[in-house]
Simulated assay, not measured.
Amino acid sequence: MSAYRFLLSAFTLLLPLASSPASAYDPSPLQDFCVAINEPGNGGIFPNPVFVNGKFCKDPKLAAANDFSFSGLNIPRSTANRVGSNVTLLNADQIPGLNTMGISMARIDYAPNGGLNPPHTHPRATEILLVLEGTLAVGFVTSNPDNRLITKVLYPGDVFVFPIGLIHFQVNIGQASAVAVAGLSSQNPGAITIANAVFGSNPPINPDVLAKAFQLDKNIVYYLQKQFGGSVGQGPWDDMP
């Protein structure tokens, strides 16, 4: 086969991949920026408001440095809660200039001796984590059918990546407080904390479903639903004839 025919064949095979609608992420911006404002009547917008990703765009001529900045991420957050961690997320709500940019970040504080960012997923973002202080054990679980745990102990200066949509966690295994900074590949990555979603949903998931899914006694399911704020012993179809 000639070199020309080989290149033509390779291009023909790759073209459907390049144009496939199956790969969909945050949209690429069509302007330098779209500083977010919530209401079109606040002034400083185009005569015909542009509504992008749930926000209206401010007139770019009125954009200022404060639209692209945030102060105070160096301040430790309280970890006095049940899991011993605190996530400070910076997205387009905190930094309006992030709107349409497809990126966000977070500071995560961990209490000593077991402060936990519990198992959760980001449905719209890959996360890259940089440890600033402390010692973290981190990991994620691959999708079915393998469900393989990939885990590592991290020290200050170490970086770890959590792939988009996969369940992951971080826990402080040191005796001092820990701090990490995360970058996320979406302006609105979302977060689904597994235990809260399963046992604290509103309305609650029927306890029979959870008892069978987790192979638990139903009384334990009732207990867990109570712990996570769900209605105990009820489900969306319990009153159906």
Score class of each variant (00 low, 15 high):
Pro236Ala: 01
Asn147Met: 02
Pro60Gln: 12
Pro204Lys: 07
Leu73Ser: 13
Ala111His: 05
Ile37Asp: 07
Ala213Gly: 14
Pro241Asp: 12
Pro96Lys: 01
Gly44Asn: 13
Thr79Phe: 04
Gln234His: 06
Val171Ala: 08
Ser78Phe: 04
Ser20Glu: 10
Ile45Val: 15
Gly41Asp: 15
Ile192Tyr: 04
Leu130Ala: 10
Val198Asp: 02
Ser19Gln: 13
Arg124Pro: 04
Leu89Thr: 11
Gly183Glu: 03
Ser143Val: 13
Pro40Cys: 09
Ala176Lys: 14
Phe11Gln: 06
Ser2Gly: 14
Gly235Thr: 07
Gly115Asp: 08
Asp32Met: 09
Ala191Met: 08
Ser201Leu: 05
Thr121Trp: 05
Ile150Arg: 02
Asn113Trp: 01
Tyr110Ala: 05
Thr135Ser: 08
Val198Pro: 05
Leu73Asn: 12
Asn117Arg: 00
Tyr155Val: 03
Glu133Arg: 14
Ser177Gln: 09
Ala64Asp: 12
Pro27Lys: 12
Met105Ile: 06
Met1Trp: 10
Val198Ile: 15
Gly229Asn: 04
Gly114His: 11
Leu149Met: 11
Pro76Met: 10
Ser143Met: 08
Leu14Arg: 06
Asn172Cys: 10
Leu224Ile: 11
Gly41Asn: 14
Asn113Thr: 11
Pro29Arg: 08
Phe140Thr: 01
Lys152Thr: 11
Ser19Thr: 15
Ser186Glu: 02
Gln225Thr: 06
Phe70Ile: 15
Ala18Ser: 10
Pro156Lys: 03
Leu15Thr: 15
Leu89Trp: 01
Leu184Cys: 01
Pro16Ser: 11
Ala195Trp: 02
Gln227Ser: 02
Leu130Thr: 13
Phe70Ser: 11
Ala125Arg: 06
Pro236Leu: 07
His122Gln: 10
Ser78Asn: 10
Pro207Ile: 07
Ala3Gln: 14
Leu149Thr: 09
Asn172Thr: 07
Gln175Lys: 09
Leu166Thr: 11
Gly84Trp: 06
Glu133His: 14
Asn42Val: 15
Ser177Met: 08
Thr126Ala: 15
Pro203Leu: 11
Ala182Cys: 02
Leu224Arg: 00
Thr100His: 01
Asn81Lys: 04
Pro60His: 01
Gly233Ala: 00
Met101Pro: 00
Phe6Glu: 14
Ala191Leu: 00
Asp59Phe: 12
Val35Glu: 11
Val131Phe: 11
Asp208Met: 09
Ile45Phe: 03
Asn188Lys: 09
Ala18Arg: 10
Asp32Ile: 09
Lys212Arg: 15
Cys57Pro: 11
Ile173Arg: 02
